[in-house]
Nucleic acid binder design. Structure first.
Lengths: 354, 354
DNA sequence: TGAAACAATGGTCACGTGTCCATTTTTCAA
DNA sequence: TTGAAAAATGGACACGTGACCATTGTTTCA
């Protein structure tokens, strides 16, 4: 890797300078309390004084120190978001919408991704707590989890909620897709096209990766009266490479499935790559249905039929919930546990046929 | 949109409780100063005392308040990242790698996206400054910019650097792709396949969207001795919809291009959608070369030839630079202005033909 | 004209930490 | 045993703000 690098002399640096409200007060010739009121309670000031202080604020470029404010008031205006992996478009969209909503309310957003790993997650949560965030929105990793720690945080006044997934025995609010309904919808759709041999690309190992969609799949199959061969039930982690391997395995079985149901859009990319390599045609040789309405699903040939999530609605609901909790906590009340479920949308395109 | 919602009674909430170092000290029977040393300078403590304090820390679940620490020491351990749009995979990857590097150093990451809009950006920068971030990594929006404000921040001791793009007259360090070289490489490649009628999908309006790649394109064409018809030089904003429109416009010209060169991966999705709709075959009817080695470029048929960016290397360089700056500032020194350029990589796939 | 009522402004302290300096305890050689 | 040096520990204060109470200036109405 070639890399050029040039170093220039830099301009004058005056050392760490920070304008405080005292500077503003001195400059405007009023007391610090009055100066502060120009920001927090401008209605309590005489118009003349207000203008004077505002001029000083502009002139000195004063901006309140959120750290000092948070320390003194005990209330921070930062939300911590822990997600699986920002590179996955579902999380990227979620982050984006949550960011917009959070900033709309004057809060800032701290992020970290946990790779679905509770060990990494643990450190991130500690960092967030160290920064005394007002709330944490968490897409928890699989595994034993940080439930006890999160409970401690909640007891200490941090608003905690989960999104997209919730830990077993979680006592927190959450915002979720109606995964069971969505999986049923998908299976019914594939069955209505005449498919009987349907395989799910997802995690079957309930201990390691307890996933609602994967748990719902066998049930959904049973409900429409379809059998689920044992050899289809191979567990993978929710990674593209694993899905690639699983697809190759499934399609070389003596009794290969006629339809594949990818439980995440990320997993679908692995499946698609495998099918391409094996020169298996979609939808002629096998149908493919995937979760997540990702941009690329429309671009490939054939366009992939998907089960889309109302990401924006979910993000908005999450932010509203956590902001409500924060208000409750401010008022020394018990925030209620709110569980919200959102319906998925089946988008029929060209990757599923009879 | 159907939405179910159930509210449960919640468990006991004890009000805002926060364990401080004083609690630890009292519990361990030492002075606050000694207790603190157990964390910051454990080597200065008698082994026996250290153990005693550490036990108290564990027992009480003490975690230092970063806010108070930052306020007192004047040093924060938060980095603010402003990017174009987290939904674009380039920024998602960049965010991810920057996040990993930043956290590796015990810092936390604050993010915001500016939609390439300097007005939005301005608010985010103010929020970051309000939170007294140690440094800001910025993918600046196009337009007159927040240069003056950023200079003020730098003067006040915030490390500021740019990534992927830099404002005209920017006095800051930056980490950039060698855009000119990459564009030349792309044009040469297309020309070597026999193309003479090449159109760029990007921004031509230098005042509104001053983009290196777009500026380099006419030069690159001239260098290989190719003409650039006036009707090809239509300016768009870097959005998928605009690229969609531009592609339709270009392909219905009397003298349509035989090769399209998308200046970002995001823009390429718009072009691809337009070409699909128009039933124009790649690469038989038109060749398509795009910036950014996005996952989907491999999944579509034909797989798209791309100019990939070394995102991880760039992220690491950025974090190293800004951390170096922060160290310099701590030491009351002038951080040097460092401009780094990285080479792109041409990945030949199936979307370009003679 | 006076006093009450209200508007406007000011003063003090604490949030939890890091820094500096002061004090106590231990160590070690003569 | 003694003294000084070194190791270990403690105390006081300030970072910039928000909350609360105290004070001063102004209006109102009989």
């Amino acid at each position: 890797m070639h890399k050029t690098c040039l170093v220039k002399a830099c301009y004058a640096y005056n050392g760490l300078v920070s304008t405080t409200i005292l500077d503003v007060a001195k400059h405007a010739g009023v007391s610090p309390t009055t100066a502060k009121r120009a920001i927090r309670h401008p209605e309590k000031l005489k118009a003349e004084t207000l203008v004077k202080v505002q001029q000083s604020i502009d002139e000195l470029g004063y901006e309140p120190d959120q750290l000092a404010s948070a320390l003194r008031s005990g209330r921070n205006t930062t939300i911590g978001l822990v997600i699986g992996n920002i590179v996955e478009p579902f999380f990227a969209e979620l982050t984006r919408e949550i960011g917009v909503e959070v900033r709309k309310r004057g809060y800032t957003l701290l992020i970290a991704d946990n790779e679905y790993d509770t060990t990494l997650e643990s450190n991130h949560l500690k960092q967030f707590h160290g920064n005394r965030v007002a709330g944490i929105i968490l897409r928890a990793g699989y595994g034993t989890g940080n439930l006890e720690y999160l409970k401690t945080l909640k007891d200490r006044g941090t608003a905690v909620m989960e999104i997209d997934y919730f830990s077993p025995d979680s006592p927190f609010s959450h915002v979720m897709l109606d995964n069971t309904g969505a999986v049923k919808r998908g299976v019914e759709y594939l069955n209505s096209l005449g498919h009987t041999k349907i395989a799910s690309l997802g995690t079957y190992d309930e201990a390691l990766w307890p996933d609602e969609r994967c748990a719902a799949f066998p049930e959904a199959m049973a409900e429409v009266g379809l059998e689920l061969p044992f050899e289809y039930q191979r567990s993978i982690s929710p990674k593209a490479e694993d899905a690639y391997d699983l697809t190759k395995y499934l399609m070389t079985l003596d009794n290969p499935p006629t339809a594949l149901f990818a439980q995440t859009g990320h997993v679908a990319t692995g499946a698609l790559r495998a099918l391409h390599e094996m020169k298996i045609n979609i939808p002629e040789d096998v149908s493919l249905l995937s979760f997540d309405n990702y941009p690329w699903t429309e671009l490939v040939t054939p366009a992939i039929s998907v089960i889309g999530q109302p990401v924006k609605d979910m993000a908005m609901a999450a932010v509203e919930t956590i902001m409500g909790d924060i208000e409750q906590i401010k008022a020394k009340k018990h925030p209620p546990v709110v569980r919200q479920r959102f319906d998925a949308e089946l988008i029929e395109r060209d990757s599923c046929a009879a």
